[in-house]
Amino acid sequence: MSVDISTVKRVARLARIAVSEDDATRMTGELNAILGFVEQLNEVNVDGVEPMTSVTPMAMKKRRDVVNDGGKAADIVANAPVTEENFFVVPKVVE
């Protein structure tokens, strides 16, 4: 399978990465090179093979459903580009 430039632009939109016309052209070639390389996986017979979900067999560890951490709002917003009173500030999303 290969991608065309309109697919590349659509994927860039899904990935939330702005691309120029030149970027999209270049990326189309690069992505097709990678997709061409991974194509060989289709040769492998995977009949009856389960997809890997965990590389080491393990049961998911669970903890008690209790609050065990918190009260760190100031720490959490400390690295944000724009904040106000421990809230993240974003451009207006609702008119």
Binding site: V38, V46, E50, P51, M52
Partner: peptide
């Protein structure tokens, strides 16, 4: 299915 699922199945075989 064509890519991700196939790759995860191949991963099982590699292991």
């Amino acid at each position: 299915d064509a890519y991700y699922l196939q790759a995860q199945k191949v991963r099982t075989l590699i292991k």
